[in-house]
Design a protein around this nucleic acid. Structure first.
Length: 586
RNA sequence: GCGCUUGUAGCUCAGCCGGAUAGAGCAUCGGCCUUCUAAGCCGAGGGUCGCAGGUUCGAGUCCUGCCAGGCGCGCCA
């Protein structure tokens, strides 16, 4: 309907332009918006006020001219000029009711569109280091990324969901060393655990599994392990130096073959856990992209070569630098360290080169907000590689600050004292967790009060929306119990019987759904959908309390049933996009 | 210090690339179950949209400055 009105308006403006009444630069000014107040009609246009100045004409007079130039349309009952120069459109209810039949006909497909048809978009999200289980901070990225991806798909994009697995680098070596040391404990060796090692219980589990499966194959005597190591922090040493020395010791003592096995034991086990965890959270990927595979395929080298060829690489202090400042970054970035090792950023250059080469029309990265300083250098790299930096969209997700009542919960992967996503799901359930995570703007800080979210009977809004769905289902069950049959066709014929305020409002809200989906998708803003669903549920609950649906008048009854069935369908569709279930009973 | 970001009701937050009288939930107070699920509904109170300027027909929304909070500023990942 909105688009239909825009077409009318555009035609009117073209007619006026042809008649020389207004300047010819008015094309972009066609904007139709929904009114907040029904007294202002159903839709309004502010075009006359925007055009008043360039047309050198009083806005209300101009509005008159536009109105008289509007083509006839059966759906528009009348227009009026209001306020400073708004053009208000009043829509024939019969045209509005049509949405109910459309919802009926399209079912789960209603609300989908083709806005992004023909475009391939990659959405990379979570991508947490596989050094431990996902915690509640990752949960927000998982929920947000999954919904953004689903929304994009709903509006026609070809979506590729990807998890970048940081399975190379120092942190993974530290994990491997941690697993090994716990394994040695299983073997009966007595040795101190590094203060900078991964202390989580899951490391012990991996080690125990390794010991069960492989016996003593990786056992080295404690005195040999501890020989020639610098002091750890408790002994007045440096914990970083100590852990690095320990990693080297593990590699030397085990040899590359056995070290790789221990390394893989940790990586595989944790990655499996992450995969299961996300799967149970309703988050699925087309691809798990390994950082290690880039290194092994020589892609990092190739990325460096390509950057060099672009002329943005120079040498200083024995290191190789990327001159990202020339492309808008704050400072230049090291690609290859003085010691010859490439940086994490060099891997990321290779990864983004890979993304470019895969030919996505749009590349969406969902990162924790603490990475925001990282954006300029990646965009700079893309530009230097000859890509279009505007193709890359980085969406930041603020970490949720976790509370237990008044008390703030500290999180640290290293210390092992964190609340995992799995724990959260077990406590509040997938539905509440999903809904809770995406109901706020993603780049906004979020206080996640476990006490509040875990109180099932409390004010968690997910139940409010689900309850509306269950109530509709309940009405249909009641219909059966009364032995009444629903006549769908008769209901559609009788829609004009829906004259109650609540009914007219509901029809209007239902017709907004496709716009909301498109808005939420194109702005990467699932919270719009959440708020819409709450509004829809609220209108329904109000309707439920003010009108009886199962009335003796069969015409009216069927009309109302068609309306609430449409409400049910939209709630189911919307919750589906959020990854939240729509229960038939509660 | 520099960069990014946030500031809206007692609390948690919406406010759809500038629109008509700034909204919701929770909390508080008062009502509604012999009729389709009370996880619900109806009503009331509660606001200097951080502060000060500016842009224009019109500003919570855009610009500048200031105040306050958060994050980021490694040859870490």
């Amino acid at each position: 309907m909105k688009k239909r009105l825009e077409t009318l308006l555009r035609t009117a403006l073209e007619r006026l332009q042809a008649a020389g009444e207004i300047p010819t630069t008015a094309e972009a000014l066609v904007q139709i918006e929904r009114t907040r107040d029904p007294a202002h009609g159903d839709f309004a246009a502010n075009t006359a006020m925007l055009l008043a100045k360039p047309a050198r004409c009083n806005p209300r007079q101009l509005a008159e001219k536009i109105c008289s130039a509007l083509p006839d349309d059966s759906a528009v009952i009348r227009t009026e000029i209001a306020g400073p120069g708004f053009i208000n459109f009043f829509i024939d209810p019969a045209a509005q009711y049509r949405v109910i039949a459309e919802i009926q006909a399209q079912g789960p497909g209603f609300g989908r569109s083709k806005a992004g048809a023909g475009q391939r978009v990659q959405v990379e999200f979570v991508s947490a280091n596989p050094t431990g289980p996902l915690h509640v901070g990752h949960g927000r990225g998982a929920a947000y990324g999954a919904v953004v991806a689903d929304l994009l798909e709903a509006v026609g994009f070809d979506v590729h969901r990807e998890y970048y697995v940081n399975d190379a680098g120092r942190q993974m070596d530290i994990l491997a060393a941690s697993v090994w040391l716990r394994y040695l404990e299983n073997c009966g060796e007595v040795l101190p655990f590094p203060s900078n090692g991964y202390r989580g219980e899951y490391v012990r589990d991996v080690a125990a599994d390794l010991h069960r499966a492989q016996g003593e194959r990786y056992r080295i005597a404690a005195n040999e392990v501890l020989a020639d190591l610098p002091p750890d922090e408790p002994e007045g040493g440096d914990k970083e130096e100590y852990i690095d020395a320990m990693v080297r010791k593990a590699k030397d003592a085990l040899g590359s073959e056995r070290y790789r096995k221990v390394f893989a034991a940790g990586l595989d086990s944790i990655l499996d856990d992450i995969r299961d965890d996300l799967g149970e959270f309703g988050t699925h990927y087309q691809e798990w992209f390994s950082e290690l595979s880039l290194t092994e395929a020589g892609a990092v080298e190739r990325g460096l070569e390509k950057l060099k060829a672009s002329g943005y690489v120079y040498e200083k202090d024995g290191a190789q630098w990327f001159a990202s400042t020339r492309l808008g970054d704050e400072k230049d970035r090291v690609l290859v360290r003085e010691n010859g090792q490439t940086t994490y950023f060099a891997s990321d250059v290779a990864y983004h080169l890979n993304k470019l080469e895969r030919g996505f029309d749009r590349i969406v990265n969902i990162w924790g907000a603490d990475h925001h300083g990282y954006i300029p250098r990646v965009k700079a790299a893309i530009q230097a590689l000859g890509g279009d930096a505007d193709k890359l969209e980085v969406l930041l997700v603020q970490f949720a600050v976790l509370y237990r009542g008044e008390e703030r919960v500290q999180m640290s992967t290293r210390s092992g004292e964190f609340v995992t996503l799995r724990q959260l799901r077990n406590e509040v359930g997938k539905d509440a967790a999903r809904f809770f995570y995406v109901m706020r703007k993603s780049d906004q800080h979020m206080d996640f009060d476990l006490k509040l979210a875990t109180s099932r009977t409390n004010e968690n809004p997910v139940y409010y929306v689900q309850y509306a769905h269950a109530r509709v289902c309940s009405v249909f069950r009641q219909l059966d119990e009364k032995g009444w049959a629903r006549d769908l066709g008769r209901g559609m014929q009788q829609l004009e019987r829906l004259n109650e305020t609540h009914e007219l409002a509901l029809v209007g809200t239902l017709s907004r759904y496709p716009e909301i989906v498109e808005l939420a998708a194109l702005q990467y803003a699932p919270h719009h959908l959440v708020h819409y669903l709450r509004d829809l549920a609220a209108e329904f609950h109000g309707y439920y309390n003010s009108c009886q649906f199962l009335v003796d008048d069969g015409d009216l009854r069927d009309a109302r049933l068609n309306l609430i069935d449409a409400v049910r369908q939209i709630i189911a569709n919307g919750l589906g996009l959020l990854g939240v279930s729509a229960p038939e009973t509660m």
